[in-house]
């Protein structure tokens, strides 16, 4: 069993990873070479080509930092630093994560409520759905600064404005998925409820909602990932105080490419962890709901 998973699942990923890392070093060499040459000329150094290689891989402000530089930077700013420090990536990651989770929670709740309304009310179906879709045609980069500024003006700042941007992004897949999910029961399953003279609340809790659970989880996986993006985007116009977005922004102000890439990697890791957490919850729920094993994802 173990060796089987190792062979079929772990190996391909590792192989691709090795290729990517190798290509990365090659790219770093090409991109950073000119920077290294300039720097050497400036200092009047006379470098052999192998020294130039080494220099390209160890620049303080490279065009493209190497994986090991990023790894060291992440290690230094997480494991070797107190989490309360303003330079700790754990601290910044937590700032972003808390906004993400709050926004995701509000977004999911909003999405479910809207879907319930749309499914149960013809007028809401007609009037709401176009707006829900229209909301997503406005680029988030345009909405985010506006929202932050407007909320700041009325005295709301900090976590909530960022969370609301996550909400703005994440409610959409939930609405769409849940509308589909709540409408997914077959006619025969609904007819059965009708023969019991079940009321709408009973039909909702005993049929529509359980039937929509697979759709909900598919939406949540998308929703949680874009919630994180929303929170990061929300941090960009706040004047770079804290959060992964702030690290990205201040890094680009000062040409700290290693800092930018570290923040990028941590956010990618966070996104992966969040999607994994949703997936793990889904597996538990699937087991409780008796989903046939081969149908489980």
């Amino acid at each position: 069993m173990m060796t089987e998973t190792l062979r079929t699942r772990v190996w391909p990923v590792v192989a691709v990873l090795i290729v990517i890392i190798a290509l990365w070093y090659v790219a770093a060499l090409f991109m950073n070479r000119s920077v290294a040459v300039n720097e050497a000329e400036l200092k009047g150094e006379n470098l052999t080509s192998s020294e130039l290689w080494m220099k390209s891989f160890t620049l303080k402000k490279p065009l493209l930092p190497t994986p090991d530089q990023i790894g060291v930077e992440i290690w230094k700013t997480t494991a070797e630093m107190k989490v309360t420090s303003k330079r700790s990536l754990v601290y910044h990651a937590w700032v972003t994560l808390s906004a993400t989770l709050l926004g995701f929670a509000i977004g999911t709740a909003t999405g479910i409520l809207l879907a319930v309304g749309i499914v149960h009310n013809k007028a809401m179906d007609k009037s709401l759905m176009p707006w829900v879709i229209a909301s997503q045609t406005i680029p988030i980069l345009a909405v985010a600064p506006m929202l932050i500024v407007v909320l700041n003006a009325i005295g709301i700042s900090g976590l909530l404005p960022k969370a609301l941007i996550s909400t703005y992004l994440s409610f959409f897949p939930v609405v769409v998925g849940m509308v589909k999910g709540l409408r997914s029961p077959e006619v025969i399953q609904l007819d059965l409820m009708h023969t019991y003279n079940a009321n709408k609340t009973q039909i909702f809790w005993k049929l529509r909602f359980p039937a929509s659970v697979p759709f909900l989880f598919a939406s949540l996986k998308v929703g949680v990932a874009i919630s994180l993006i929303g929170a990061i985007v929300g941090e960009l116009p706040t004047g770079a105080v804290a959060g992964l977005g702030a690290r990205l922004l201040s890094g680009s102000y000062y040409g700290q490419t290693i800092q930018i890439w570290s923040a990028l990697f941590v956010s990618a890791f966070l996104a992966g962890a969040l999607v994994f957490a949703v997936g793990a919850t889904e597996r538990v729920v699937n087991r409780l709901m008796g989903v046939k094993p081969e149908a489980r994802v």
């Binding site: 077959e186 025969i188 399953q189 007819d191 059965l192 409820m193 023969t195 019991y196 003279n197 079940a198 009973q202 005993k206 049929l207 359980p210 039937a211 659970v213 709901m289 008796g290 989903v291």
Partner: peptide
């Protein structure tokens, strides 16, 4: 609730165990 209806397909709810499926009308009533 004068009648019980048996459809051509069993129409059991897949997320309920057999006993919970039989309990469905009883819960509703």
């Amino acid at each position: 609730r004068a009648y019980g209806y048996v459809f051509q397909a069993a129409a059991l709810y897949p997320w309920r165990t057999i006993e919970k499926n039989i309990a469905l009308p009883l819960e509703i009533m």
